[in-house]
């Protein structure tokens, strides 16, 4: 078997094991949440009888182990169960039905942001390394550090003020619908994507710059210089291939953040993503939804890290052909 394929399979197996452990942690931590759906939904009108009826209907009276096995058994078959809220006689809301459109929205926004942020930060990082310690380098560094230092909602407000209220370039709300055409969708998501770009660019750009500068001190780079290769070629052809491993790791980390951690941006721009769904589900103790969201987030981290590892292996001959 090809060594890369073997590594991928090994990592996927380990990923599944991690996911299984995570599922146990998620499930048991849900048991520690004070109150339950019945009391959260019924509020002031929660009499002992109605709470008991609710708990029975939702199957909350079974022992935790039984409920866990039922849940994980369903998840393995792709069935995340049905939401506690919005139930009435003969009508249930499937968790996947709730999550799917919002997960798609979140992935779309993450993808759009990545399409802007990743090339931008690579370009900025490489040029900053090329002209290091110049005015250009310092300006880029100072600007990106400034934008990463502000809280996300503040960056969002500033962008809304400039680009939506004072100059009406983009809409201030990104409330996309499932049937919004692609171009409209991109236009509506411009401000949230821009906000997230400003928040993540610094991390990736500085890692690119640092990784390349680190290599520029190596003897083989000096050799390249001595044989008369231009400095841009030195960086692109000689330094960059060896710098991919740390850069890709940081990119993967930031992409994962774009999927799981953007609830503040979602709220400010009224973007129907998965973060707001999870926050609402936690506050009403809609446990099946919370568990499904948490599991999806865990899987995102595992997959993106796997991707980063594979890229580091593929780009590094010493890891690709171990002795």
């Amino acid at each position: 078997m090809h060594p890369i394929l073997k590594t991928i399979l090994q990592r996927l197996g380990l990923g599944l094991l991690t996911l299984f452990v995570v599922s146990i942690i998620i499930f048991s931590s849900m048991q520690f949440l004070p109150g339950d759906f019945a009391t959260a939904v019924l509020g002031q009108s929660a009499t002992p009888e109605t709470v008991a009826a609710f708990r029975k209907e939702l199957g909350l009276n079974d022992p935790a182990v039984v409920r866990y096995i039922q849940w994980i058994g369903g998840v393995v078959q792709g069935d995340f169960g049905s939401s506690f809220s919005g139930r009435s006689a003969g009508r249930e809301r499937e968790v996947m039905e709730l999550i799917a459109p919002r997960l798609w929205n979140t992935l779309f926004l993450a993808g759009l942001t990545a399409a802007i942020a990743v090339p931008l930060s690579l370009a900025l990082g490489i040029t900053a390394a090329l002209y290091r310690n110049s005015l250009y380098d310092r300006t880029i560094n100072a600007t990106t550090l400034t934008t990463i230092s502000f809280p996300e909602f503040f960056v969002a407000y500033i962008l809304i003020l400039l680009l939506a209220t004072l100059w009406k370039v983009f809409p201030s709300l990104a409330n996309v619908r499932p049937d919004t055409p692609l171009m409209d969708r991109i236009y509506m998501c411009a401000l949230p994507a821009l906000t997230l770009t400003l928040v993540i660019v610094a991390h990736m750009m500085r890692m690119t710059r640092a990784a390349i500068i680190n290599l520029l001190a190596s003897p083989y780079i000096e050799m390249a210089r001595l044989k008369g290769v231009s400095s841009s070629k030195v960086i692109l052809k000689h330094a960059l291939p060896n710098a991919w491993a740390p850069i890709v790791n940081v990119i993967a980390f930031n992409l994962a953040y774009l999927v799981v951690g953007v609830v503040v941006v979602e709220v400010v721009f009224v973007y129907p993503g998965i973060g707001q769904l999870m926050v609402d589900a936690v506050s009403t103790r809609d446990i099946p939804v919370v568990q499904a969201c948490a599991l999806i987030f865990a899987a995102t981290y595992i997959l993106l890290n796997l991707f980063a590892d594979i890229v580091s292996i593929v780009t590094n001959p010493r890891l690709l052909h171990p002795r």
Partner: peptide
């Protein structure tokens, strides 16, 4: 839900 976003949406005509 966000009060600043709400006021902005009104001012930008959304």
């Amino acid at each position: 839900l966000d009060v600043v976003a709400r006021q902005n949406a009104l001012q930008s005509g959304d």
